[in-house]
Computed example of a mutant assay.
Amino acid sequence: MIVNSTRGLHDCELCARPENTFFKRDAGLLLGSGEIRVFSPEGDVFAAPNLIYHYVNDHKYRPPLQFIRAVAEGPVPFSDEYSRLLDAMGLIWRENPLREGGLRPFKLVQTADGIKKVFVDE
């Protein structure tokens, strides 16, 4: 689930070869296309790029303890409480899955003829 979708993709600047980042568990998610919100039980609100999963998993980034605690103890996405908190902030959220037979992972590559869309094998 993302809020504040972007009109483009942000590549990971820490990777040796920056390219679009995909996460796949039950459904594929395109990372680098928006932000997430995390709410603590005390009412704190944290914003992070949805690439944070990639930063933590692949680059061993450790967010602040308050953020980690909010992820572990705060309301979970898709719950009524989470939706209520987003609504109260005036934020619109949406799912961002890569559906079967739908979107395919790709990257944009500069060629001599201009920019070309290249599909990436998963």
Rank of each mutant, 00 (worst) to 15 (best):
G101P: 05
T111I: 06
I115V: 15
V3T: 14
D26L: 09
T111D: 05
D26H: 11
G28R: 04
A88L: 11
I115S: 01
F78D: 11
P77S: 06
L31A: 02
E19C: 11
L65N: 06
V38W: 02
G114F: 07
T6I: 05
L30Y: 05
L31E: 04
R62V: 15
V109L: 08
V109H: 04
T21A: 11
P63Q: 04
Y82T: 03
K60F: 09
L103K: 10
P63V: 02
P49A: 04
A48S: 11
L91Y: 07
G8M: 04
V71L: 14
S79Q: 06
F78L: 12
K24M: 08
F106E: 03
G101D: 03
R99W: 08
D113R: 13
V56H: 00
P97F: 13
T6P: 00
F67E: 01
H59V: 02
F119G: 00
L85M: 13
E73R: 09
E19Q: 14
S33R: 09
N4Q: 13
R17T: 15
S40P: 08
I52H: 01
W93D: 05
T111H: 07
I2P: 01
S33H: 09
F39L: 04
G8D: 13
N96D: 14
A47E: 12
L30K: 09
P97C: 01
K24Y: 15
F23T: 02
G102Q: 13
A112H: 05
S79L: 06
V109M: 07
I68A: 09
R7H: 12
L9I: 14
L103S: 11
V3C: 10
P49N: 08
P63N: 03
Y53H: 12
F119D: 08
H10V: 14
N96Y: 06
G90W: 06
D44Q: 15
W93F: 10
N50P: 03
M89Y: 02
R99M: 11
I2W: 01
V45Q: 07
Q110T: 11
C12T: 04
P41K: 12
R7T: 12
G34V: 07
D11T: 10
R62M: 07
A27P: 00
A27K: 12
Q110P: 00
N57P: 00
L85D: 01
W93Q: 08
P63H: 03
E13Q: 12
P49K: 07
V109I: 13
